[in-house]
Design a protein around this nucleic acid. Structure first.
Lengths: 354, 354
DNA sequence: TTGTAGGCGTTATCAT
DNA sequence: ATGATAACGCCTACAA
């Protein structure tokens, strides 16, 4: 009765079936069950049917954890977003999950809130998950992060932006160029005084890149760079204040056009213009960025840039999938997927030069 | 030279350090390294310092996969959203990740697009990850899903809604009640003809719950239930069409107020009203749902309901954390966290009865 | 087509 | 405070 060598207590959690349970019920070995899931064609039809029935009956689901450990290839892709709650990143996430779920990959998500340090932390955490690939949404990382990425030996995609000479895959569009595009849109209409309004500090660094593009285009045209930064967090309020300040400025000294770093600021300006006694675009032409759903509904409808947000997420995931199914030739040339960011010209940017 | 028993090729992936590497470098056993990470106070200060240095130097990160398997307690929480790309769910996700990341838990995300079947698939997938907890965003599941949830033996939180008699934790607010609240807001102002406009079919089923609440309140007041459904996907367009149709209706037969199932539809209506020659709220009072950032900026500013989106995500995560740290008394009474959904009265709902 | 042996990197258990 | 040993549940390598 008294075992001389008390066997170790089993650590097995109750209630969870394992591959062995299924194998025992089917009268086969566990490796056959493994094959049933991973390469069904290597299992005879008879056994397959028996297993199907048993799996269905007892509700067995293979453990991704054990499988990932054993095979060394888990089914996780990790992504670091800059602001999950924003429409931009939410659309990116949707594009990614739609694509990844279809391939049986799971997306592990982290939020870096535009902070390099938080991004580094997220990457470090992700390393412990042994992901199949990593999707980032910026291209300037801390040295420590860059070092980890270099050591990772998995596909790394930098999505949203599109810069040169990076060792990682690029999926997105050049932000500076879009800023220049908007500037030229006004310059070509004959404007000389064009202002660019950045959102409140500490936020989206991409806006800064667009501002640089704007500045470059203005200088190239021999015009003054007029860069302003919002003094409130709320983008709508920032836009409203900008337009109020404009109304208080003598017409001769006003910019002829304002480029807002995002559509929300522009919308705030448009919706508040009436209260300030301004009529847009007569008193000032406007443009935004992002093509928010509301933008086409505004009066005047807002000229803006339409980044292919969902498609960028989708293409980032596709790039991952492509690399995963490619020959394991190490260090292939990074892919460069340029996605459109279309200029949508609407009424708000029609310049009436005085 | 020729080994008689050729050893199996090691499966070890190059480039990745293991706990044994660290242990060897420090001249301790691997379990000590494990303790260094999981209960540092059980390791002497000297060893601790030595390990800190080594870990730092070689950039070792413990494998969550191996650890999860060995301990039976991984660091994953899974969540099934209904529409990741919407502001609502994006805010929920942010609330969750903010809270979970702080506790070293990772959020695995899936998107069900308001589909019960997709939700079931997501849950099945998640079961294979052996998550510590599950966060769902609806309370009506397929029987198969319900069965899996019942067998799971981990905390399950149903967030966003707030219903009775569920076996799972509830974190949210009662949607039907909010619909009734808006109806009463107009009834109390003396309205008798109040319409409720649902978004295009196949979308948000919560809108249906709010519509039911509205219908109940109308009937209780002896008024006719006037339920319409948008005929286009785009919410802004749906709102615009609704207001256009209203303009084409003789004033005497028009509803005195319209409750839109979400703020986007209401915004579409407000922004298009001018084009139809209508003045709001004089010709028709309006209300929405969701308190989108734009709503307060519209002219007239939109009366709406403000659900505590971020807080619901946060509280869902907190509920998970609380259950995980609680005594393992099985089957505790499900927690019920009622979060606010405040009525924000603005100009758009000021009824001018004729 | 099926099976055997052993290892994936970590932690639980028991022992010192 | 530290270590030896055996799981955790699955998959790769090799064999039949």
């Amino acid at each position: 009765m008294n075992d001389s060598t008390p066997p170790r207590a089993t650590r097995r959690k109750a209630g969870t079936h394992t591959i062995h349970d299924v194998a025992a019920l089917a009268g086969v070995s566990s490796i056959t069950v493994s094959r049933y899931f991973n390469s069904p064609d290597k299992v005879s039809a008879a056994v397959r049917e028996r297993l199907r029935e048993i799996v269905e009956r007892i509700g067995y689901v293979p453990s991704q954890v054990a499988g990932g450990l054993a095979s060394g290839r888990g089914r996780v892709v990790c992504a670091v977003m800059q602001n999950i709650a924003s429409a931009t990143f939410a659309d990116l996430v949707k594009g990614m999950t739609d694509e990844l779920q279809a391939s049986g990959l799971q997306l592990l998500l982290a939020n870096a809130q535009y902070s390099q340090t938080l991004e580094e932390n997220a990457i470090r955490t992700f390393v412990g998950w042994h992901p199949r690939a990593l999707i980032l949404t910026r291209d300037d990382h801390t040295p420590a992060a860059e070092a980890m990425l270099g050591a990772l030996d998995i596909p790394v995609v930098e999505a949203w932006g599109f810069v040169e000479d990076r060792p990682f895959h690029q999926v997105g569009f050049p932000h500076a160029e879009t800023g220049a595009q908007l500037a030229r849109h006004f310059l070509e209409q004959g404007a000389t005084r064009v202002r660019f309004v950045l959102p409140h500090v500490g936020e989206d660094f991409r806006a800064g890149q667009r501002a640089q593009g704007y500045a470059g285009a203005m200088q190239a045209a021999g015009c003054k760079v007029d860069l302003a930064t919002a003094d409130v967090e709320d983008d709508f309020e920032a836009g409203a204040r900008t337009i109020a300040a404009l109304a208080a400025t003598p017409a001769a000294r006003r910019p002829q056009a304002i480029i807002f770093a995002n559509d929300n600021m522009a919308a705030g300006a448009i919706l508040h213009a009436g209260d300030c006694g301004l009529s847009l675009p007569r008193d000032c032409a406007l443009a935004g960025f992002g093509d928010a759903p509301i933008s086409v509904r505004l009066k005047p409808a807002l000229t803006t840039l339409r980044p292919a947000r969902y498609q960028i997420g989708q293409m980032a995931a596709r790039t991952v999938l492509r690399m995963l199914s490619a020959q394991p030739e190490h260090e292939p040339t990074p892919r460069r997927e340029l996605l459109p960011c279309e200029l949508i010209v609407r009424e708000s940017s029609r310049l009436s030069l005085r």
